[in-house]
């Protein structure tokens, strides 16, 4: 009984609250870094120096599809987390694989779009706007890439360790990270693409 009460202070449903708090603080610092990048983008967004503006970087329907894809991957990850809370291992794996697939499609769409700009002579060297654009979009993409690697590692670890408290804590941290990436993408969608379409 005593251990149970002690446990309750640090553990919520078997999860390690301290680890999750630590990861939350990391996300806060990442958030602060991106606020600087978004401010830089907002300041430089009209400094196109004769090169293309944001309206020519990507078509809006393309970006909308990317947005809906990423939001759907957040939902499928949520299904995975809920399945792990229920203790259903197979469903957890299934939803995580679907999340991985959706994330990979999102990332390859973003990569092709940036690569297309690059091969058409619109690189980060060509204007202050393009530098800011490539930095913001590229860094979010890099975060997604790291997220996919992390998810791949989780998919290897899960069959070995099953739904232990440690694995569920890791899954919870990954969920926070992925939600943060969705938030970043929604802000990119608003500040970069929609603002550019006014």
């Amino acid at each position: 009984m005593t251990t149970h009460t002690l446990d309750k202070n640090n553990h919520h449903g078997g999860l390690d609250a301290k680890v999750i708090f630590g990861f939350w603080v990391f996300i806060v610092t990442d958030c602060i870094m991106f606020s600087g990048l978004f401010s830089t983008y907002a300041v430089l967004s009209h400094s196109t120096f004769g090169n293309i503006g944001v309206a020519q970087t990507a078509s809006l329907p393309f970006v909308l599809v990317q947005t809906l894809l990423f939001l759907t991957s957040v939902l499928t990850l949520g299904f995975g987390v809920a399945a792990s809370t229920r203790g259903n291992f197979n469903q957890t794996m299934l939803w995580l694989v679907i999340t991985f697939a959706l994330g990979a499609i999102f990332l390859s769409m973003g990569y092709h779009q940036l690569a297309n700009l690059y091969t058409h002579g619109h690189t980060w060297r060509d204007s202050a706007f393009l530098s800011a654009y490539f930095t913001v979009i590229g860094l979010q993409g890099l975060h997604v890439l790291i997220g996919l690697l992390w998810l791949a590692i989780l998919l290897i670890q899960l069959p070995l360790q099953k739904l232990s408290d440690t694995m569920r804590t890791r899954l919870c941290c990954f969920g926070l990270f992925w939600d943060f990436l969705a938030m970043l993408w929604l802000l990119i969608f608003a500040i970069v693409y929609l603002m550019g379409a006014i």
Partner: peptide, 11 residues
Amino acid sequence: SDFSVQEANKK
């Protein structure tokens, strides 16, 4: 591990 169907449904 304390799994909970109730908690999962809430999520």
